[in-house]
Deep mutational scan, measured.
Amino acid sequence: MQGVVKVNSALNMRSGPGSNYGVIGTLRNNDKVEIIKEVDGWYEIRFNGKVGYASKSYITIVN
């Protein structure tokens, strides 16, 4: 499943599904990501070869 990031500035990509996990990357508005699965309001995603987590509130699913 594919998604597009929708933010005003930047979205942190984290090592786990929560804001208490470390930041491993930064996503920008309109970045395209691969959604692997949903975990407690977060998406596990793949972006630029990295796998991490981002809040699903800021990612819109596209077909």
Rank of each mutant, 00 (worst) to 15 (best):
L11R: 07
F47L: 08
F47Q: 06
T26F: 10
A10L: 11
N8D: 15
K56H: 07
N8M: 11
G18N: 07
N12L: 10
E34Q: 04
D31K: 03
Y53A: 01
V23W: 05
N12I: 12
I61F: 07
I61R: 07
V51P: 07
T26D: 07
S19C: 07
G18H: 05
N30T: 08
N20E: 13
Y21S: 05
V51G: 08
D31V: 06
G22K: 10
N30G: 13
Y21G: 03
G52T: 02
P17T: 02
Q2P: 09
K32H: 15
V33E: 00
N30S: 10
L27C: 04
N63W: 02
I36C: 04
K32Q: 15
V5K: 01
I35S: 01
V5M: 02
D31M: 06
G49T: 10
I61D: 05
G25H: 10
M13A: 08
V4M: 09
G3S: 03
V23S: 09
N29V: 05
G22E: 15
Y53R: 00
L27Q: 01
Q2W: 14
V7M: 05
K37W: 07
M13G: 01
K56T: 11
S9A: 14
G3V: 04
E44R: 04
G49Q: 14
S15R: 06
S15K: 09
I24S: 07
A10I: 10
Y43T: 02
L27V: 08
N29R: 06
G41W: 06
V39Y: 12
V33F: 06
V7H: 13
N29K: 07
Y58I: 06
L27D: 00
S57A: 14
T60H: 13
D40S: 09
K37N: 11
K56N: 09
L27A: 04
L11I: 12
N8C: 06
N12K: 10
Y58W: 10
G22T: 14
V7Y: 05
Q2I: 15
Q2E: 15
S55I: 12
N8S: 10
S55R: 12
G49C: 06
E44F: 07
V23K: 08
E34W: 05
G52S: 04
V4R: 13
D40P: 07
N8A: 14
G16M: 02
F47W: 07
N48M: 14
R14G: 02
K6I: 12
F47I: 12
I59T: 02
I61W: 04
S55P: 09
V39R: 06
V4F: 05
L11H: 08
I35F: 04
A54M: 08
S19T: 11
G41V: 09
G22R: 07
V39K: 08
M13V: 09
V39I: 14
N20G: 12
V62L: 14
L27Y: 01
L11Y: 06
N20L: 07
G52C: 03
D40V: 08
V5P: 02
K56M: 11
S55E: 11
V5H: 01
P17S: 03
Q2Y: 11
L11F: 06
Q2F: 10
I24K: 04
Y21W: 12
Y43I: 04
N8I: 13
T26S: 11
A54G: 07
V62W: 08
R14V: 11
N48A: 10
I35P: 01
V51F: 09
K50L: 14
I61M: 09
S57K: 11
E38G: 06
R28Q: 13
V23G: 04
V62S: 12
N48I: 07
N48G: 09
I36Y: 07
Q2V: 15
R14S: 06
S9W: 09
I59Y: 01
V62F: 10
D31T: 07
S15Y: 07
Y21N: 05
D31Y: 05
E34F: 05
A54H: 01
M13Y: 06
S55A: 13
T60F: 15
G18L: 01
V23Y: 05
A54R: 00
N29S: 13
N29Y: 09
I61N: 06
V39F: 08
R14E: 02
R28M: 15
Y21H: 12
S19Q: 10
I36M: 09
I24N: 07
I24Y: 02
N48H: 13
Y53W: 13
Y53G: 00
D31Q: 07
V39A: 08
N63C: 06
L27F: 03
P17F: 01
I59P: 00
